[in-house]
């Protein structure tokens, strides 16, 4: 029997550090796509150790785990400590759907003073700090790819996308970075 193998992400070795903008591949994470009616939110929040946010564009995070509101009954939960999110939810008997999407998504960390302009090359949303404050998140588009934007700091976003779109997303970020 072979030994357990390491994860090989889609953006291995990709990096860009340009004037005012940095693109870094995010570390592998555990991800859960959670769908649930309101009735299940309490036990799920308890099981996950996070208060699942119910406001549009809102996220909550604690330690290395975060839950991003994607829709009225939909959340993306990200754990960067390798926590078993499926296992955490397994004990919840209230109707919900927990699906492991750890490998479905990959993420690029985009940061620097030019971050809003770079993302606005492909994302039509208003990313100004008043409208898209730190902690805000949204499932949106970046060029021709669907992405989830999550503002982690004033000048930093996490851009989640599906694995096979990550090459396109990274290249478009690079192209946008060149537009100074």
């Amino acid at each position: 029997m072979a030994d357990a193998i390491a994860r090989t992400g889609a953006l291995e070795g990709r990096f860009l550090n340009d004037e005012g903008i940095t693109l870094v591949r995010a570390e592998p994470a555990t991800r859960l796509l959670l769908r649930a009616p309101e009735t299940a939110l309490k036990p799920l929040s308890k099981a996950l150790g996070l208060d699942l946010p119910q406001r549009p564009k809102a996220s909550v995070s604690g330690g290395k785990r975060a839950a991003l509101w994607l829709g009225p009954d939909e959340w993306l939960v990200i754990d960067e400590n390798g926590g078993d999110l499926m296992e955490d939810c397994a004990s919840v008997s209230a109707f919900h759907s927990a699906v492991d999407v750890s490998h479905r998504n990959t993420a690029v960390l985009v940061s620097g003073p030019r971050v809003e302009a770079v993302l606005n090359a492909g994302c039509p949303q208003d990313l100004s700090l008043d409208v898209f404050p730190v902690g805000a998140c949204s499932r949106t588009v970046f060029g021709k790819a669907e992405v989830i934007l999550w503002r982690t700091e004033r000048d930093a976003f996490r851009v989640e996308c599906w694995r096979s779109f990550s090459d396109y997303v990274f290249m478009l970020l690079e192209a946008a970075s060149r537009d100074r």
Binding site: M1, L33, V99, V101, H103
Partner: peptide, 26 residues
């Protein structure tokens, strides 16, 4: 509830009379 898992899974099809012999050790 429905969730797309298209990209969660890599799929390796092993087809043919020897398919079981090939995957069995793994």
């Amino acid at each position: 509830y429905l969730t797309s898992t298209s990209e969660q899974w890599a799929v390796i099809a092993v087809q043919g009379p020897k398919s079981r012999d090939i995957i069995a050790p793994l």
